[in-house]
């Protein structure tokens, strides 16, 4: 147990410069939480004074922030000066579980949604940029060729055919002018930007291999409930803009083999 406990303590220290400082100040108090041999205690007491421990702590933070900044770039930028304190809070609350980008992003998104709901996040843009980027990431990681093969087996829908959104497309609602919002996020001026409110609905499509953004007319937006579900059966007649863009596919009975298709 001693080696396991030593490794646990070292991980905890690398994850927390605050814990390193606490160990310097009060080693008995900090190390009481671990089952250590005298030599392991001495090693931990020594490493927190080494300059290289700061490098370890910086590497940990750089490696942990990388997936967030890489996959939620606009969201992170929108947080401005709050980003650092929210990261600290997230890292204190949620241990780094597995080093996987997607699960770390999911955990941060859940944490951020809660902070937004609690009114702690001050940017009015974060919520919609978060949802936009999560949907974009879901599209980019989708098995595109497989989904296209499955869609190809479906007949073209008639005007009244019950449909669903193409598995390589996502609808995203914006409450601010999306052009101005995404432009400001791209130029990294989103934290201080003033962007007019404007309700709109975009479709993101990866059908052609590149992400295409399509502005949808207001009547489609009004056909959605607050959760983004269509209030009535989705047909090409109800949403001709989606049908014209090739983003409606026939709704089929769910079965096991179509599971991936349905979940997309």
């Amino acid at each position: 147990m001693s080696v396991a406990s030593f490794q646990q303590a070292l991980c905890d220290l690398i994850a927390s410069p605050r814990l390193c400082r606490a160990l310097r100040a009060a080693p008995d108090e900090v190390l009481a939480n671990y089952e250590l041999s005298a030599r392991e205690r001495a090693r931990l007491c020594d490493v927190v004074w080494q300059r290289g421990m700061s490098t370890n702590c910086s590497l940990y933070r750089a490696n942990r922030v990388t997936p967030l900044y890489m996959l939620l770039t606009y969201t992170c930028r929108s947080l401005g000066d709050q980003f650092r304190s929210l990261l600290d809070e997230f890292w204190d609350a949620k241990i780094y579980r597995d080093g996987q980008f997607s699960s770390e992003v999911e955990r941060f998104a859940a944490f951020l949604r809660k902070r937004i709901a609690d009114g702690i996040v001050s940017s009015p843009f974060t919520a919609e940029l978060l949802e936009f980027e999560l949907k974009l990431n879901a599209l980019r990681s989708a098995p595109r060729k497989q989904l296209l093969r499955e869609v190809k087996t479906l007949p073209a829908p008639g005007p009244d055919t019950p449909c669903r959104i193409h598995p390589l497309a996502r609808l995203v609602r914006f409450h601010h002018d999306p052009d101005a919002l995404l432009d400001a996020a791209e130029r990294n001026v989103i934290a201080s930007a003033k962007i007019p409110r404007r309700e709109s609905l975009l479709a993101l499509s990866l059908v052609d291999g590149e992400v295409r953004v399509i502005q949808l007319p207001d009547d489609i937006r009004r056909a959605l409930d607050d959760d983004g579900q269509f209030l009535e059966s989705l047909t090409p007649q109800l949403a001709p803009a989606l049908a014209d863009a090739g983003l409606l596919v026939e709704r089929r009975n769910r079965n096991k083999s179509a599971r991936l298709f349905m979940d997309a």
Binding site: L59, I95, Y96
Partner: peptide, 10 residues
């Protein structure tokens, strides 16, 4: 039994 990643190769 909780898994934790060190964030680097230690």
């Amino acid at each position: 039994g909780q898994e934790q990643h060190a964030g680097m190769a230690v």
